[in-house]
Amino acid sequence: MAKRDFYEILGLDKSADAAAIKKAYRKLAIQFHPDKNPDNKEAEEKFKEAAEAYEILSDEDKRARYDRFGHAGVGQGAGGGGFAGGGMTMDDIFSQFGDIFGETGGGFGSFFGGGRTSTRSRGERGSNLRIKVSLTLEEIAKGVTKKIKVKKQVGCDQCGGSGAKDSSSVSTCNTCRGSGMVRQVRSTILGQMQTTTTCPTCNGSGQTIKDRCTKCKGDGRMYAEETIEIPIPAGVEAGMQLSMRGKGNAGRMGGPAGDLLINIEEKAHDDLQRDGMNLIHDLYLNFADAALGTSVEVPTIDGRVKIKIPPGTQSGKIFRLKGKGLSNVQDYGQGDQLIHVNVWTPKKLTDEEKRMMESLRTKENFHPQPGKSDRGFFDRMRDYFKG
């Protein structure tokens, strides 16, 4: 099922500023928060939907790509496809956007009564990875799944990413009592204000480690090569960036992984050039074929096709092959293939060819007259070449 427009989800138009986006998201998050709507799947989906919209529109770079390319520009095709946003969980939302209510005192949890400390992500989030993927026009036209080998930080296979030597080496943090967060109350002119911050003792993991893993030295990560399948939708463009949630570097001490950012590059095609959704082919004809008409084969993204060149075709004429271009990345239609005609003029002529051209130039009846039919001219030229 196709995703809804992010501006529509938040009830905004495309000119909305950052403050309006934050305000709209905050309103929806309060309305559909799980603590206010227990066991309500519809409210939970709307809560996630609003968070996905805010994730993109609150980031200037992601918003610019979304405005230009739609969901595919931020790696969010229909159904998510494993890209950022499509696989967002409740843990992701509370860990990433929980502080949006910080000004009310204490984040999501304290705002709604403090019932969601269990959603706190453990450890530190891993960093994002950025790669380039070069695609042929054929791959762009059809869409493709690429298998890419990436060397990155993965969870330690000895300790399972915990960073501890064994289970007996792990204990609950005494400072935060396992929540990963600490609350502070301070007095202001408006009264007492409560804030929630990451625990300084365990760095948000909720645990302390007595004996560290000997393989990863307590980090919970190690370097390894991983093969990742990247589904790329049809119609992507050079410069577009896709992202895959959780496919970046593993987090420290069991923290969530970062994202994999995929920058799209296009390989040059031997016969076709891209112009948005359209493809362009330069067709070179000799003077006789342009004057007399002919049939020629031209390359397309689906193979060669034959087209008819009518008599009297002029240099600069453009033929259009409907629907032979590229699909729009947002499924808004299909482009065409444009064939630009260039009448080729030879640079070198044999003596016989020079005499032929001179003969044509001196014959007055071989010069078409403006405003009159060229039919007689072409007939005489055909007879001349046949003779």
Score class of each variant (00 low, 15 high):
N203G: 11
G206C: 00
T214Y: 13
T227Y: 09
P233W: 12
G204W: 02
G206W: 02
Y223L: 09
Q241P: 05
M240Q: 08
Y223G: 06
P231T: 11
P233F: 15
G248L: 01
Y223K: 05
M222P: 12
M253N: 14
A250D: 06
Q207L: 12
C202M: 03
I228D: 03
P256Q: 03
Q241Y: 14
P256W: 05
N249K: 05
R221W: 12
V236N: 01
G251Y: 03
K247P: 06
K215L: 00
T208W: 05
K247V: 11
G220V: 03
S205G: 04
D211N: 09
G239Q: 08
M222C: 07
C202V: 13
T196H: 03
K247F: 11
Y223W: 10
P233I: 15
G239W: 11
D219C: 06
N203L: 08
V236R: 03
E226G: 11
T201F: 08
T214W: 10
Q241V: 15
T201Q: 08
T227G: 05
K247E: 13
Y223V: 13
G218I: 04
I230Q: 03
P256T: 08
G254H: 03
M253W: 09
D211I: 00
M240H: 07
G220K: 01
G255L: 02
N203Q: 08
V236K: 03
K210D: 00
